[in-house]
Design a protein around this nucleic acid. Structure first.
Lengths: 190, 190
DNA sequence: TGAATTTCTTGAAGTAGTTCAAGTTTTTTA
DNA sequence: TAAAAAACTTGAACTACTTCAAGAAATTCA
């Protein structure tokens, strides 16, 4: 079922039927169990991942040995380490599924051929990554200007359903505070 | 002098002479004095800015009335608010020159025509924005894992020259600590 | 050049968060 | 369905930073 990806692409560019055919022969979807790693720290990242179903995250392990989530990806999001991908340098991140997932993993060579066969896709990936970059800037703004409690409530208001999907400690680290503090915020003990 | 931009583009794609001609007729460079604003909070951002010479920054004013710098751009960097640009929503940011600058401001309509005339440019902007997004992720990693002092030394090691170019209080806010604390770090009083 | 403005420094007091340790609850798995 | 593992909670002690206020130094510009 590549449909979700094709639909996502068609939000930004118009594909010919022949191009859809090409995409269907080049891409395939795979099931990935919860907690499996798509990328390990130290590996060179040579794939982009599109989440068809489920949830994945990018995280690191800090100097105290605690996991800190830097990014989540749910349905219709791409996730990867673009720096490692483009520079062929070892990644600083782990990418791991948080739920059982259906994922389209696009290998670098495959993508390069696709971009040559269907140059319009350059536009799709340009727009998607420019929007992602914009979102990352807003994220930094929120981290800079809001208190821990404000960040929690703000996120919770914008994404009430998502908050139910992931363990609290992952969300706490994504919002840059400790799991214990999250507990206190939720209990109103702060 | 569009040369720096043309050189930057040619790092990622090969341009025909005819395409260079098109670029030269569509783009123009302007001088912008230090401390002028390229974008004000609340405006819809409909331009991309390429810094040919000088330094600019993206900042916000927080609830205490203090400026916080979210991003710097120097020679050969693009700066804009992609979220406002793509969604036509009012920007949450200011973009301001930090030094006297030479800037190529590309208006949205101009860029759309250029991308139609020279589709290869889609590739250029895709790669540039994917790399920027990668850099933003690393930035979040450093903010999450390093202490204020570590962030300062790390940044200073990577960009010793740049540190001399901007006021300390701007760099302090970019690294997410107070100007006073920056002073103490530099004096070794911490 | 000298006045005005901007930037940097310093110390003292305060606080938003962390850390630790132990216990409880929930979920997963065999 | 019992045992194991994962996730969440709680309070007490701590700390990395902020805030404030005031003065000193450097830079800008008329």
């Amino acid at each position: 079922m590549l449909t979700p990806l094709l639909d996502h692409i068609e939000k930004f560019i118009k594909l010919e039927l022949s191009e859809i055919d090409i995409l269907e022969t080049c891409l395939n979807i795979s099931k990935v169990k919860k907690k499996e790693h798509l990328l390990q720290e130290g590996q060179v990242c040579n794939r982009l991942y599109f989440i068809v179903k489920g949830c994945a995250r990018q995280y690191i392990i800090n100097s105290k040995g605690t996991e800190q989530t830097l990014q989540f990806a749910i349905e219709n999001w791409w996730i990867t380490d673009y720096l490692s991908y483009h520079n062929n340098t070892p990644s600083s991140f782990y990418i791991q599924t948080v739920e059982n997932c259906e994922v389209i993993a696009v290998e670098k060579g495959t993508l390069e051929s696709l971009l040559i066969e269907i140059p319009k896709l350059e536009r799709y990936f340009r727009i998607v990554s420019q929007k992602s970059f914009g979102a990352a800037q807003m994220r930094i703004k929120f981290l800079f200007t809001m208190s821990a409690e404000e960040r929690y409530h703000h996120f919770n208001n914008l994404n009430p359903d998502f908050v139910q999907r992931v363990p609290q400690y992952m969300l706490a680290s994504y919002l840059d505070f400790s799991a214990e503090f999250m507990s206190k915020i939720r209990a109103g003990k702060v």
